[in-house]
Write a protein that binds this DNA or RNA. Sequence first.
RNA 1: GACCCCAUCGUCUAGCCUGGUCAGGACACAAGCUUUUCAAGCUUGCAGCGCGGGUUCAAAUCCCGCUGGGGUCGCCA
Length: 423
Amino acid sequence: MVKVRFAPSPTGYLHIGGARTALFNWMYAKAQNGKFVLRIEDTDRQRSDQKFVDEILDSMKWLGLTWDELYFQSERFGIYREYAQRLIKEDKAFAEGDAVILRMPQQEIKLYDLIRGEIVFDTATIKDQVLIKSDGSPSYSFACVVDDALMEISCVIRGEDHISNTPKQLIIYQSLGFHPPKFAHLPLIMGEEGRLSKRTGAVAVSDYRQEGFLPQALVNYLMLLGWSPGNNQEVVDLDSAVKKFSIKKVNKAAAIFSMDKLEWLNSQYLKKMNTDDLVNLLKPGLQEKGCLLEQIDGQRLRTIVDLYKGRMTTLKDFWGWTDFLFEDSLRIDANIRQKHLAHDLRKEFKLLSERLANTQPFDSSSTEKIFRDLVAELGLKSSDLVHPVRVALTGKEVGPGLFDTISILGKEKTVQRLNEAFG
RNA sequence: GACCCCAUCGUCUAGCCUGGUCAGGACACAAGCUUUUCAAGCUUGCAGCGCGGGUUCAAAUCCCGCUGGGGUCGCCA
């Protein structure tokens, strides 16, 4: 029976590195029809916090990394103490005050890592290990070993930063008379300036969610860090990745996190996404911006989303780009006004607004015809009028095609804004 | 410092195990096409086996050394 676990400590948010570890564990389990255990390592009561537990569980669900079993180490202190007592009785450990310390035997110890092959350690350089601390709580390594054994974890997949913990834990397995599981140590994810940090960008999974990334895109990006589905594939959904996943094909070298590529993947998923689903994802943000969703026609909202879908990098883009559609009055930045509305186009705008006011139906092809005819009559280049009009209507220098924009803005606001453009 | 891990374009990677394919793809970057703008899209381009020794007819691929990067040395996890 294949069974793996992801064991975060609720002393902080679920970060990108942890999410990748969880993902690889999850893929490993699913690929072999095994189980995935989520174990919250909350033995440090001072630093653990319920809000982090909630955030971790929430992020895991958001990513789609569901678990089969959930444990909290804080509920298992009795078990750890029991095994520690046993080691004292067998003289493999000794008490020091209320603490229990493991006697480190002097020996060579071999680790067969699924990714790295054999790694040999000499325990001569490792000192005696604390099993139970003076306050009665278990040390990380001890709780970890007891739990992995009792929960029948078949393979421990964790970050490379744990390699040096492994010989200590192997000694604990040996002392306890437990069979050790297999091990696989994943390469680390690093930031552009070395260690992955807040300076490089967001580190918490929830930050990416907040920034408008899709969980599918984040998961896709994370799986590409240290692993490849082959066939030159880059955009791969979780299900097909699971079918191809092999822990032995995981890279040994650390990878540097690239926001550029994550953004590219996110835009790819956004483009492919069903419009109705995207509308639903966008709604909460619109509401936050004070938009009254009840007053917006559903079909109109779908049209708007369709228009912007292909150009978005994150969900956040949409909210910033479409504010002009949902607000009554338009504020135009002084610099942008200076750049595009410096010439007095009062006359041209008036003609345009009068003709548009009489246009029926008010769609992009009919407004385009009106516009082009007028431009020809006035002997202008279309760009002479396109850019000022866009700014007057949207307050922005860039955006989708002007006639699509006019069409979704609607006759009333278009006419009004053209008339008010020059005060 | 000690111990351990690692090393293909700027970045993520395929290829390495089972030596012999112009070292393939993606992001980024550049150019062109398209175009009312910016994106998107399409096309093209730029760019890599860290260094030095071996082994071999032949090395990105196997071996050794060096250099460089990373990790760990807590009664944190």
